[in-house]
Simulated scan of single mutants.
Amino acid sequence: MSTSTITVRFEAPAPEPFRRLETRQAFAEALRSKPGEWALLGKYSTPGTMRQEAYAVRQALDPKDQPFAPAGSFEAEARSVCGEFRVYVRYVGGGAA
């Protein structure tokens, strides 16, 4: 009988996405305090909204996305995980001035 080794990561359910300017500001500040570390922005109902949210964070064009300005100072990745559509974000600094 062979034994397989797998890595299991336990975590609480994903929070609702941060949509309000105030919560996005707090989220962005938390990421600025830990450059390079990925954090879960939230889970979304469809793959399209997930991808759009990641794009919006990267570009920081909409007023609600200004906490992520300037464009390029945050990276955002859209990922499907076990049927959930998630967006992960990290602060990398720099960006367009």
Rank of each mutant, 00 (worst) to 15 (best):
S2R: 11
S2A: 13
T3Y: 13
T3V: 15
T5S: 14
R9W: 10
R9V: 15
R9F: 06
A12Q: 05
E16Y: 05
P17E: 04
F18L: 09
R20K: 09
R20H: 09
T23M: 08
T23W: 01
R24S: 03
R24H: 05
Q25V: 05
A26H: 02
F27V: 11
A28K: 01
A28Q: 04
E29K: 00
E29Q: 12
R32S: 03
S33T: 15
E37F: 00
E37P: 00
W38H: 07
L41H: 15
K43W: 13
S45Q: 11
G48D: 13
T49Q: 14
T49H: 13
M50T: 03
R51D: 12
Y55M: 13
A56P: 00
A56M: 10
Q59V: 14
A60K: 07
L61D: 14
D62Y: 10
K64G: 06
Q66C: 00
P67G: 05
F68H: 07
P70Y: 13
P70S: 11
S73M: 04
A78D: 12
S80C: 05
V81D: 04
V81R: 08
C82K: 12
C82V: 03
G83H: 02
V87K: 01
V87F: 04
R90F: 07
G94P: 01
G94L: 02
G94T: 01
A96R: 13
A96K: 10
A97Y: 05
A97F: 03
